[in-house]
């Protein structure tokens, strides 16, 4: 039943419902499959055989199988790995000496103002209490 070139449908896993062909028989339980699914080792219990048989060699390449599938009017999506674009490196803006000095002076004035206000708050006014002597 399970021979090289037998069309099958994968039942289990993320490729379930997709058509594949047996490329190689590895074991009494395992086969190598390729087609709409990824090229991978597969358990026979995860396959449902179909009536059709494709003429392919043992361990046929992925390109050959795509050609055979095209004859059966089954298109296989081929995905190419995306090329990573080079990210532009972030460069720190170097400030001029004039700008640096201007920022420093602004900071110093701010700190001096805050310190002066704190001193004022620290010394509250004393209230004068006047007691009237009542005879």
């Amino acid at each position: 039943m399970y021979e090289i070139g037998r069309l099958c449908v994968k039942i289990a896993g993320r490729d379930a419902g997709k058509k594949c062909v047996i490329v190689d028989i590895l074991d009494s339980n395992y086969v190598l499959i390729d087609g709409e699914t990824r090229r991978r080792k597969c358990n026979l219990t995860h396959l449902e055989p179909l009536n059709q048989i494709i003429k392919i060699k043992k361990k046929a390449s992925n390109v050959d199988i795509i050609k055979e599938f095209k004859k059966l009017k089954i298109e296989i999506k081929t995905t190419k790995p995306k090329k990573a674009e080079k990210r532009p490196k972030k460069t720190k803006k170097i400030k001029n000496n004039e700008e640096k000095t201007a920022i420093k002076t602004v900071k110093q004035t701010k700190t001096s103002k805050t310190s002066s206000t704190k001193e004022k708050k620290a010394t509250p006014k004393k209230k004068t209490v006047t007691t009237k002597k009542v005879k």
Binding site: I11, A16, E48, L50
Partner: peptide, 13 residues
Amino acid sequence: CSKCTRAKIKSSI
């Protein structure tokens, strides 16, 4: 479940 999905795919074939 996995069993029911297998049965469903088989029946559709």
